[in-house]
Design a protein around this nucleic acid. Sequence first.
DNA 1: TAATGTGAACTTCTTCACAGCC
DNA 2: GGCTGTGAAGAAGTTCACATTA
Lengths: 219, 219
Amino acid sequence: MKSEHIPAPAVQRLSLYLRELEAIRDSGSQTVSSRRLGEFLGLTDAQVRKDLAYFGHFGHPGVGYEVGDLIARIRRILGTDRASNVVLVGAGNLGSALAAYRGFARRGFHLVAVFDNDPAKIGRPLAGLADLVVRPLTDVAAVVREFDVRLAILAVPADAAQQVAESLVAAGVRGLLNFAPVAISVAEDVSVSTVDMAVQLEQLSFRIGAARRASARAI
Amino acid sequence: MKSEHIPAPAVQRLSLYLRELEAIRDSGSQTVSSRRLGEFLGLTDAQVRKDLAYFGHFGHPGVGYEVGDLIARIRRILGTDRASNVVLVGAGNLGSALAAYRGFARRGFHLVAVFDNDPAKIGRPLAGLADLVVRPLTDVAAVVREFDVRLAILAVPADAAQQVAESLVAAGVRGLLNFAPVAISVAEDVSVSTVDMAVQLEQLSFRIGAARRASARAI
DNA sequence: TAATGTGAACTTCTTCACAGCC
DNA sequence: GGCTGTGAAGAAGTTCACATTA
């Protein structure tokens, strides 16, 4: 297969496979079948095979996939086989929590700087992170260039998000993980992924409401 | 239209429309066209109309949609027209940040309790939130029943997530917003939405890598 | 026997294009 | 003229089922 166009949902699942594979590796398995890999994620074996086949011939008929090999391949595909530098803008509650999160480092992302424009925060280390001193937003361009930063995390208030995004992009950032509850528009060669936690709760609210309505009808 | 089956992506977008509509209302507009509503979200006008039409006849030909009315209708559909009680499990960095986040309350979710099993945290108020005292996990069932809690936020380590999820579900919770980087399996009448921030960064990493590869080919 | 990779069938979602209404 | 609602067409994604390989 190894085609030109790969469905976006397939790429999303690739990350989930990676997470699952790491757990499988830690449990001691050398190989894994498409069925087992999909099981926990609620996916069919065919789906798993199709997804992986978009990227190459990774499996061995009759055997399955070699766990360590597949992890390495997926990391290469995602571009996380080498650590990449990331900056964080916004040293409030959420920003501090994100900076302290170890999951980023474990998956190949190295946080090199934190920015904020609050004079009370600038110059101080983030709570519990002695090596990360908050820097003023005016330093963004210099840091992005110095550390060849391509990804940034936005944890600023909604009304500041668009402007901060623009300065990051101007400095050379190519991907933004936005936690502000607002849509951000940037040049189309820049990727933005917005995580709006209230939206997630609303979706759950709808789904449990729909379930209740459905069961009410069934009675 | 007002059909039985509604595409999941349409429901997702409903939340985004709501967010956008609130901004439009605050900017003073009384009505909005499908084109304008979709513009910022990168959606076509047809998509917006189709999505809204799944739920009823909300618009006025020649005029558009009445902003306040549409907000009220979408809130009803999502089940957020009345505040619903939510609990949070995990009072670490992320949990504390989530508890302090005002966006939940603004969108109709009321955080009634925070749980943790760390004795050093139990009995103390969350940083900056005097009214939220951390309670032991053993209180979950009682609180869920007392406040008729249907939604819970999980901000616990990955290796605890499944177990905590099970106790929440046993207590009567019907929807889980999971921030632990692990798939959770529960009865199928319970909804789970997992937000894995490292996965989001990986997706961005892939997209900017793919863009680079594409431009390299183009040269 | 066990499991992959993949065309073909099927299902789901999106876009088009236009009748109808303000 | 402006704009919605929607059937029909088209595109995208998923599942099936089987040839193939270990």
